[in-house]
């Protein structure tokens, strides 16, 4: 159990105390800065800039990557590029099947993982008494969150593709990605449930509601939008992953829209990978590669951004 701590000071504690100290110290003669203190202050300022440099330096590198991709890729994006079928093994034409394939993969995975994740979160947060089962489940969830995507790929290959004989297919890909999304959805949904204040539960129970009625009518309606927002982060991550679908779903070149859940599909991340490394004269189709990268980045960052903004909105929104 955590011990009660003292009330927490305002968040901008350091900044505030600094300015207050300056304001007080200045006019009092006996409290002027001594020489060693001045040296320390200079060192401190240097360190401050160093830390700032680390932050913005790395951000600049990431910015360089994004600028390069968008700068060279955006001019490629046309309506045709987005809505045409690919030609010549992907060297020409559009990327519609890859967009559609990725959308199908993540939508299917989301449809599988969301109910499971929300149900798990409800059980863990509203029903389960602390104990061995909860401890093991939490360990399992964090394990899932930390496993490399390629391990999910191997697992999907072993279980869905080979053992259950779904073959390399949209179905196998969805199932594999769903396993990968699950921990993000559970963690986000638990956060959403915890943000629903206790009086809604107590008030409902006091009116003679059963625990499930309470959750169903007085907790879930307020938590669900928050849950979906959090789940979008998992969806975005899954949409950008290549390794899990490498052996379970991804096809190099199928110049038509997905037809059945039992066939392979093209997908954006794999398409980018294939165009860059599997294509004989990869350097000649840079524009196709950049265009695909832009679409993939926009999709993934867009979903993430919507998820983060909505979730932070729900964190603050309610007046309780």
């Amino acid at each position: 159990m955590s011990e009660p701590t003292e009330p927490v000071a305002p968040k901008d504690f350091s900044a505030r105390s600094r300015s207050r100290a300056d304001a007080v110290a200045a006019p009092i003669a006996g409290l002027r800065r001594s020489r060693p203190a001045a040296v320390a202050a200079r060192r401190e300022a240097g360190l401050r800039w160093l830390l700032r440099g680390a932050t913005y330096g790395m951000l600049a590198v990431i910015g360089w990557i994004l600028l390069d991709i968008f700068g060279k890729g955006l001019p490629v994006i046309t309506w045709q590029f987005l809505t045409d079928l690919p030609r010549a093994s992907g060297a020409a034409g559009g990327i519609l099947p890859a967009i559609a394939g990725t959308c199908c993969l993540v939508a299917g995975a989301f449809a599988l993982a969301l109910p499971l994740g929300v149900a798990s979160a409800i059980y863990l947060n509203e029903y389960a008494a602390p104990g061995r089962f909860v401890a093991w489940t939490r360990l399992a969830i964090s394990t899932l969150a930390g496993l490399p995507p390629i391990v999910f790929g191997l697992f999907g290959l072993g279980l869905f593709v080979l053992f259950l004989q779904f073959g390399a297919s949209l179905l196998s890909g969805c199932l594999t990605l769903a396993c990968m999304m699950l921990p993000t959805i559970i963690v986000g949904s638990e956060e959403a449930l915890r943000s629903v204040p206790a009086f809604l539960r107590h008030g409902s129970l006091a009116l003679g509601a059963t625990p499930w009625q309470t959750i169903r009518y007085n907790v879930l309606p307020y938590a669900l939008p928050h849950m979906v927002a959090g789940a979008l982060l998992g969806v975005a991550r899954a949409a950008g992953e290549t390794a899990p679908i490498l052996f379970t779903a991804a096809a190099f070149y199928i110049p038509r829209l997905p037809q059945s859940i039992l066939e392979q599909v093209m997908s954006l991340p794999y398409h980018l990978f294939a165009l860059t490394t599997q294509y004989p004269e990869a350097a000649r189709i840079r524009s196709m590669q950049y265009g695909t990268a832009v679409v993939l980045l926009t999709l993934v960052l867009g979903l993430s951004l919507v998820g983060i903004v909505l979730r932070n909105h729900f964190r603050k929104k309610l007046r309780w």
């Binding site: 009086f199 809604l200 107590h202 008030g203 006091a206 309610l318 007046r319 309780w320």
Partner: peptide
């Protein structure tokens, strides 16, 4: 309850 807030 004391602060028996109505449901939203």
């Amino acid at each position: 309850f004391q602060h028996s807030n109505p449901f939203p």
